[in-house]
Nucleic acid binder design. Structure first.
Lengths: 238, 238
DNA sequence: TAGATTGTTAATCGATTAACAATC
DNA sequence: TAGATTGTTAATCGATTAACAATC
């Protein structure tokens, strides 16, 4: 284990035996990054954990705990240097390098994703748009032309694509997923409403519209029933 | 507290003091529902927790535990009646009623959402599409015309809209959110890369493209560094 | 120095999992 | 009855939170 780098910030990796950062923390780092970028854009140079926590929508104890997994980048009595911390988080996430992604399935959603400006601005390059429908192949979307799914292997190889986005109908998702994995993609963002089976080395994250709506519906229903929280139970008669 | 309904299935609500279902479980119910619907479509009438768990991509212990919060709907030695369980879950989520939603911000993503067929098929009616840009108002998308954001109040009132979807740029999200809340919407699905502040009675769920990609990038980076899991550490030389 | 704020500890809470008695 | 499978228990694990000593 010689890959643990040094940095004057004094990383606590070694102390933690480098077992990685907790998943819940990893999921919040991009949120902190965004908050820091926003503060930086507003010319704020220093921020306390309280400031940052407010901007990120979490409480400050959680934020400090999260940051403590990365290293000790703050100054007691002062706070955090916005740009320095921003860089450290970006580096931790892996945004100091560019990532090539392919988007498979260029229907309505695929189009929207292809045109999404938030990709490039955060270091994600869309290397190709792919579709299995010959009628769509060749169509221009933004400044890319839709490629055939058959070109997947060469595209992944030529652009060193590590991340694939699936925006196909549910029925096609598993096959597309298999082909992505076979081509060497090891991280998948799945927008199709389907459960994907993948080998252990492949990460899958799922974004599912209708599941999100259903979760909201569940809570909405409870509100309507007057069962929200325990407020009524505790405050009301018993 | 007289609102706990009876059902021959024998609900355990009362026994649990009706403190609701754990959030993690709520988030999986829609996944189970989808798996059940798929089995039902395949004419499967009975399924074991193992079958269901496989279809849903979880382990069977978790699935049984989750279902146990709803009631006792299975039969020992046999399994679950697919259609019966499907109905019970749908009812628990609140899908036995229709939900009206509005989509605000009809750019690329808003268009894709407006055309998404998964809404209607799961009991979510898109009551209106709204945009603050006068140039867009009146445009037809699917079988709806884009309305002005100024009509929000009357639309929410007339259609009893409980759920709002925000697909605006980040800069507009908070104001749109405030207007939705003021109009009476109490559940929000936010696609804008912004942290929303809302009153306590309002639920917000966030779907964030670039955050998902960044989480994948983090893990991808670790894989590249040969630090995946502890496999190497443990199996390798020390 | 006095005031402010971090980084860390320890307590608590919630979620996961394996195991198995209950029971079809 | 014998085999299968649920529903539940209890142990474990991971995440959250408040509090505060360390320290700028």
């Amino acid at each position: 284990m010689t890959s643990a780098r040094k940095s004057k910030g004094g990383r606590s990796r070694d102390a933690r035996g480098d077992r990685g950062i907790p998943e819940a923390t990893v999921a919040r780092l991009p949120v902190y990054l965004r908050a820091l970028t926003s503060l930086s854009d507003s010319e704020v140079s220093t921020a306390s954990s309280e400031d940052l926590a407010t901007a990120a929508g979490v409480n400050s104890a959680k934020l400090r705990k999260d940051l403590s997994y990365l290293g000790t980048y703050g100054t007691r009595g002062v706070g955090y240097d916005v740009n320095y911390l921003r860089y450290q988080i970006a580096r931790e996430i892996g945004l100091t390098q560019d990532w090539s992604v392919v988007i498979v399935g260029i229907g309505n959603l695929g189009h929207a994703l292809a045109n999404y400006s938030g990709f490039a601005s955060r270091g994600f390059q869309v290397a190709a748009l792919l579709d299995s429908d010959p009628a769509r192949v060749g169509d221009r979307v933004g400044d890319l032309q839709i490629s055939s799914l058959d070109d997947l292997d060469s595209i992944v190889r030529d652009h060193t694509v590590a991340i694939g986005v699936i925006a196909t109908p549910a029925g096609a998702a598993q096959e597309v997923c298999d082909r992505l994995v076979a081509a060497g993609v090891s991280s998948i963002l799945n927008f199709a409403p389907a459960v994907l089976a993948v080998p252990g080395h492949v990460d899958v994250r799922k974004v599912d519209l209708s599941i999100e709506l259903q979760i909201l519906a569940y809570h909405e229903q409870r509100k309507a029933q007057g069962l929200i929280g325990l407020g009524e139970l505790e405050a009301g008669a018993v």
